[in-house]
Amino acid sequence: MLILRCPYCGVDADETELAPGGEAHLKRFGPGSGDDDFHDYLFTRENPRGVHFERWRHAHGCGKWFHAARATDTLQVFGTYPAQTSEPPKEVLALIRAARPGWSWREFA
């Protein structure tokens, strides 16, 4: 069972209060992009054993979307942050580097 802190209302929300939204920080390829880029944007997802960045929605609370960085194997949560960003905040990356030396996830490491 996951407990994530919603960065908007500040509560520690139980997983059942949240709705999952898949992978975070997707780079969008829309009209005019190449077939391969569009295919990857649409279908190719990370499925790591370890550090992962995800989107979650505080569906039964304030209703806002946010991002979470966590480990899929230990369920350790490195941090949550508002969704209006294209990359994880420095503090979160620093925490992940400390806990998981040598990790990488897409272009982040």
Partner: peptide
């Protein structure tokens, strides 16, 4: 005040 889930409903 908390908005939350009560069994299956908001």
């Amino acid at each position: 005040i908390r908005r939350t889930r009560m069994a299956q409903i908001p």
